[in-house]
């Protein structure tokens, strides 16, 4: 809670500074490597907080009541003005995260114009920490497919209107296809590895490092990175095999 507040304060100050012209583009936070990383960390943590909410709401299917509770939750998410506003912020956050990721990754490539003949990266770092760009791109590809499956039909078409079909029915229909179930599971593995590095990395980027609390953050990060994608993956699996119906 305190951290969340801190992060939000950072973000707020950042935007105030950025947009009141106190700092020009040349000396502004976004022009520096650390500033970009700061925003990367803020957007990353924001996306993590979104995952938590998303996972919670979707877990309502596990009541196994034919989607009754889940549909109520989905209805609330689809109509509450605060949630709808946050949805816009969320899209902004994802776009900022992707844009910065692209910029940082390309800049980093330029910083080593002649590469090494032999590298032994595994001797000094985790493979997933070095492949964040790739893992992120896989997540992005998944996101596009995923938005098409659910967000598009529930928000932008009247497909679900008139009580003809609920979001729960939509899920059951989509997850009939085993290839889609496999794709969802594989994407959750990408997400897990992205978070395995990203969760603790975001705190480091924000300078939130502490002898006593950093080990806690790291453990919480590992737990989050395994638990949340696992719960998400359980949804298509259980629906496909008719355990949830």
């Amino acid at each position: 809670m305190v951290l969340y507040f801190l992060v939000n304060t950072f973000a707020l100050e950042f935007f105030i500074n950025q947009f009141t012209g106190i700092m020009s583009k040349k000396t502004g936070l976004l022009s520096s490597s650390i500033g970009k990383k700061l925003l990367m960390g803020v957007t990353g943590l924001f996306l993590i907080s979104f995952l938590l909410v998303h996972c919670f709401i979707n877990s309502l299917i596990f009541f196994n009541d034919g989607g009754e509770t889940f549909n109520k939750g989905a209805e609330f998410m689809g109509t509450n003005w605060l949630i709808r506003t946050m949805e816009i912020v969320l899209f902004g956050g994802i776009l900022a995260h992707i844009f910065l990721a692209l910029k940082l990754t390309l800049d980093n490539r330029k910083a080593r114009p002649v590469g090494y003949e032999v590298t032994n990266g595994n001797a000094n770092s985790n493979w997933y920490s070095r492949w964040m760009g790739l893992l992120g791109t896989l997540i992005l590809m998944f996101l596009i497919i995923h938005l098409k499956h659910f967000w598009y039909v529930s928000r932008l078409t009247d497909h679900l209107d008139g009580g003809l079909e609920t979001l729960f029915d939509e899920m059951k229909e989509v997850f009939e296809n085993p290839i889609i179930v496999a794709l969802y599971c594989a994407s959750m593995i990408s997400l897990a590895y992205h978070l395995l590095h990203g969760f603790q990395s975001a705190f480091q980027s924000l300078g939130l490092n502490h002898k006593k609390y950093t080990p806690l953050i790291k453990s919480a990060g590992v737990a989050f990175s395994i638990l949340i994608p696992a719960i998400f993956a359980a949804m298509p699996i259980t629906m496909h095999f008719g355990i949830i119906e």
């Binding site: 520096s32 990383k37 940082l104 980093n108 910083a111 603790q200």
Partner: peptide, 18 residues
């Protein structure tokens, strides 16, 4: 110092720990 570091063309940290 950070400004100079960026100007010299070093890359951005991604906390790999290498």
């Amino acid at each position: 110092m950070v400004k100079q570091m960026d100007e010299e063309g070093f890359g951005n940290c991604t906390n790999t720990g290498a």
